[in-house]
């Protein structure tokens, strides 16, 4: 991969930094070693702007735009860490956490490559985990007895990274978002099982999931932090 050429400079947390053509504020910040929190962001995918944790303060702009969907512009002045921003992020993160219940934030790293992102964001920002406790979205599918991908949607925070990686990277469009509000869940056609869908079991949804709601079922055989759901037997897979 060749990087696009440098397109100018802007002020980032008081530092003059260069940005590349078409680069978002978030991408430029991370490239310059500034850790802006995020949950729905995967730098291989189109920016989604869903979780809003990457909100930043831009001089002369009302409100706090998401830095993943804000293109870096010459001479803009951006702050990524202010007490006000962290307050906002704590509120947002408390809402995200309420989606899956704070009891199951710690998940085994064998679940997937990105599975620690939510608990790391919580450790970073320290929100009030019980502030919005109540209704949750997403129900696990223990009935989906495929041998590879555990669909543990009780942990889902509806960041849509799995759906987007399936479409944008794998080109498969096997999974989709169904329902609205607390009825939101990740689904395949007719609400069925992955093996009856166009899923190729490439595992990219597993590896981009920031909560472990999608997990590497085979690796989970070796999980140490909790009892992993067992792999289905051959007979169970057939039925």
């Amino acid at each position: 991969m060749t990087s696009p050429p440098a397109a100018g400079t802007f002020m980032l947390d008081g530092r003059q930094v260069e940005f590349r053509e078409g680069e978002s504020v978030l991408a430029a910040a991370r490239r310059h070693g500034i850790d802006v929190p995020s949950l729905c962001y995967d730098d291989r995918l189109e920016a989604f702007g869903g979780c809003r944790l990457c909100a930043v303060a831009v001089k002369g702009v009302n409100g706090f735009p998401a830095s993943c969907t804000t293109q870096a512009q010459p001479d803009m002045e951006v702050e990524t860490r202010t007490p006000e921003l962290d307050d906002l992020r704590r509120t947002l993160l408390a809402m995200v956490v309420s989606e899956n219940g704070s009891e199951r934030l710690a998940v085994d790293p064998l679940r997937g490559l990105a599975s620690q992102e939510l608990q790391e964001a919580v450790a970073d920002l320290n929100p009030d985990l019980d502030r919005f406790k109540g209704a949750t979205s997403g129900s696990s599918r223990p009935d989906d007895a495929n041998p590879f991908i555990l669909r543990d949607y009780d942990l889902c925070i509806s960041c849509y990274r799995c759906v987007r990686v399936c479409a944008e990277q794998e080109g498969d469009y096997a999974i989709t978002v169904a329902g609205r509000g607390f009825g939101t869940n990740i689904s395949v056609e007719f609400d069925g099982h992955l093996r009856d869908s166009s899923c190729t079991f490439c595992g990219q949804c597993v590896q981009t999931c920031p909560t472990g709601a999608l997990a590497d079922r085979k690796a989970m055989r070796f999980a140490q932090t909790e009892e992993p759901p067992p792999l289905p037997t051959r007979k169970e897979r057939r039925t």
Binding site: M1, R44, G112, L113, P147, F148, Q169, E170, T200, F201, C202, G203, Q204, Q207, T208, D216, K218
Partner: peptide
Amino acid sequence: QPALDGPANEGALCVKGQF
């Protein structure tokens, strides 16, 4: 696990490589 900085796959794998 796939390597996100892998020049050929950029974080992708297929069912064989993954599982």
